[in-house]
Design a protein around this nucleic acid. Structure first.
Lengths: 326, 326
DNA sequence: CTGTTAGCGCTTTCAT
DNA sequence: ATGAAAGCGCTAACAG
């Protein structure tokens, strides 16, 4: 039989209310009795039951984290950021994978509701109205993480993807590249990727931007698509929408006997550890992956304890890390 | 005010007990009344409160997952396996990072206890008796995942690391390599890595195995250590304890102007996506990372519902994937 | 500063 | 097949 707050109360010869007070620090307790309670707690090896607490207080100190797939490097790094800050504020996280499927995402918001999480950190490729409806119905505070909400209805943490796209192209143009290819997912697969492409197009002005589509953006697909494309077009530079796509581009180029950066320059997005694990090491538009998670979680804690929030839509800074691929 | 089971009962003109029965299928309910209840549920948009359920039933359908660091590729893949199977059996996971620090690990088992998780999946580098004591005290079923328990006291899922070490060396020896280096972490950093080294040593018989230590096994450290070592010793093959270390080895070799596999062959452990994202692509001893998680979780579900278990210590198979680095 | 007393929303006997 | 009622272990008024 596990030890309950009632056992502690008896052992310390006080009421359960007093025990609750010393555990939670919700009211002043005389030093002397506090000590008695603490002694009793350690003597009995008492652990407060978080489930009972949750039921009584209506707060579980648990956050739901909904992501497309933890096994993606970018996401895992972000989750680590979330968990670190959650831990710091004494929250735990329930992690689920949605594979970015709307139906599943809506259902997951439902299970988070049932589990009575205090808040949700949400990441997806394309935010649909069904998901927003689900948030409303569940009445749970949500922070979007590295996810674009065109109408900015929901608190979020992001970078300026449009500018990031511009910056990548600008960087190559300054190196006097003329024929630039943009390797990315299919249109509609990711709002973030689509925004970057828009930014890139804008910076090209009236020059052509050669868009290379790679489905969901996997290495193997990109490898063959880039190869095909380069054979037909004489590109001298490539922007890749992720490190993985960047790696594929570099290898495709090298497999054809061309050199990076001499023949073709490559710049990619993200800056996961992959970027420094290729030869040549990759120049990137670095995304603050860990910070996405950490800042989202911090924002959520503010929302949860009604701290003043200056900005419900935080924009983190991206930056260019120049390495050998350009 | 959220809808409760009581509201549903009233709406359907039955008792809450009956509502509970149709939700949980714990007893036969007449088709007619079941329909009334289901209607009421959807009409009111009722969601059972998992916290209240947990308190009443003493089972939370939540599993604690304690890992060193989700942001490591290997771990993230494993967590994905855990979550997929958990989801299949209607469990959720609470994920925490321990950074493999004993003190923190013990404390995390404590918070899992408080959260009343039904079971724990545990991964660490070195399992200490303090952690085992913590499991005992919390009285929670635990499954070790990709973690060596020398005394096999706790249910676990692993590969045969000793044999895997032997196999790696055997493979190189068959290719008539003579001077083999083993790149790994410092001794005592990881029981798994140490076991592999033992296996490797065994297969070498009376020949020298050149052990290259790299602290905690990070790419950057390995890069310089391997370089130093290769300059002084004429190695013709390397076994690396992880993909990351393997990549470092390949790059160190190439940076010195030597060729892989012509001058030095490289075989690594794990087979994360990294292995096919290098040139040359890496030959590896593949570990079933996803399966580690999936099988662990499946084993745990058996433990939790008292299904018969044939084997409390599951050994998964590793296998060699030959690519261009050998 | 401390104790008493309702619940929180559900599951689970025990009756009927 | 269904209902009544007693908790599960804790928090949060409300008294005093």
């Amino acid at each position: 039989m596990p030890v309950t707050i009632y056992d502690v109360a008896r052992e310390a010869k006080v009421s359960m209310a007093t025990v609750s007070r010393v555990i939670n620090g919700t009211a002043v307790v005389k030093d002397d009795t506090k000590k008695r309670v603490l002694d009793a707690i350690s003597r009995l090896g008492y652990r407060p039951n978080a489930v009972a607490r949750g039921l009584a207080s209506k707060r579980t100190r648990t956050i739901g984290v909904i992501v497309p797939d933890v096994s993606a490097a970018f996401v895992a790094e972000m989750v680590r950021g979330i968990e670190d800050i959650a831990n710091m504020y004494d929250y735990n996280i329930i992690l689920v994978n949605s594979d970015a499927q709307v139906e599943r995402e809506v259902s997951l918001v439902g299970t988070m509701w049932e589990k009575q999480v205090d808040g949700i950190i949400y990441m997806t490729n394309v935010l649909s109205s069904q998901e927003i409806d689900a948030f409303e119905e569940a009445q749970i505070p949500v922070v979007l993480c590295a996810t674009e909400d065109p109408e900015r209805r929901i608190p979020s943490v992001n970078i300026d993807n449009y500018r990031a796209g511009r910056d990548a192209v600008h960087f190559l143009l300054e190196k006097s590249c003329k024929r630039i290819g943009f390797v990315t997912t299919d249109e509609g697969e990711s709002v973030v990727a689509d925004r970057r492409l828009q930014g890139a197009r804008n910076r090209m002005r009236d020059m052509d931007l050669h868009v290379i589509r790679t489905g969901k953006g996997r290495y193997e697909v990109a490898l063959s698509k880039v190869r095909e494309y380069i054979e037909s077009q004489e590109l001298d530079a490539i922007v890749a929408a992720s490190d993985e796509l960047g790696l594929a581009a570099i290898h495709a180029i090298q497999d054809m006997g061309k050199r990076v950066p001499e023949d073709v320059k490559v710049i990619a997005f993200d800056n996961t550890r992959l970027a420094t694990m290729v030869r040549p090491e990759m120049t990137v538009i670095a995304q603050p992956m860990y910070d996405f998670g950490a800042v989202s979680m911090r924002l959520l804690t503010k929302l949860l304890q009604d701290e003043p929030v200056e900005n419900y839509s935080v924009t983190l800074l991206h930056n260019i890390v120049e390495r050998q691929s350009t």
